[in-house]
């Protein structure tokens, strides 16, 4: 790798930090969402086992948060090649990609966890809560999607 002022040796380290932060923070959010809404399902399932199928929706949504992080990690990892001229701009841009999708995933997973736990418990008592719960979950989910969109747009700059 030719070292220059614009592409120093430590630039790939910053990019790797982007990959790691995307996966770590995104999976922290997904894990919190899965665990917290899983507690709610365990509470509902003992009283109304027929509702479990519908109560699993927050768990599926938490899984999607992890898929967002995975997509961005794969995208960044494809740009990192040993021996290529990897500029410091690319490194910081990949860090921004990873942090944006990771931390929005953490926020979305936290939101899905709290809403999923309380939402399914309310749904057990009042079935009309379901539409509102799913809507709130979708709005929480969209927070992670915004991070993904920003990361995808940032990632296109690395070609230039």
């Amino acid at each position: 790798m030719a070292e220059s002022e614009l592409s120093p040796k430590f630039a790939p380290f910053i990019g790797m930090g982007g990959i790691a932060s995307a996966m770590i923070f995104g999976c922290m959010g997904a894990a919190y969402g899965t665990a917290k809404s899983g507690i709610g399902i365990a509470g509902v399932g003992t009283f109304r086992p027929d509702l479990i199928m519908k109560c699993l929706i927050p768990v599926v949504m938490s899984g999607i948060i992890a898929v967002y992080s995975l997509v961005i990690s794969v995208l960044i990892a494809q740009d990192l090649q040993p021996g290529s001229n990897y500029s410091l701009f690319n490194g910081f841009m990949h860090l921004a990609c990873g942090l944006s999708v990771g931390l929005t995933g953490l926020a979305a997973g936290y939101c899905i966890g709290v809403v999923g736990d309380k939402g399914v418990r309310s749904y057990m008592l009042q079935s009309r809560v379901f539409v509102g719960m799913v809507l709130i979950l979708i709005f929480g989910e969209v927070l992670g999607l915004y991070g993904l969109i920003v990361a995808l747009i940032l990632n296109t700059k690395s070609k230039g």
Partner: peptide
């Protein structure tokens, strides 16, 4: 890879809607 990544995210959401 940007469009492919966006497609992957859309497919994940399609699975959610199907669920």
């Amino acid at each position: 890879s940007t469009y492919a990544g966006a497609l992957a995210a859309i497919m994940a959401n399609a699975v959610l809607i199907g669920y």
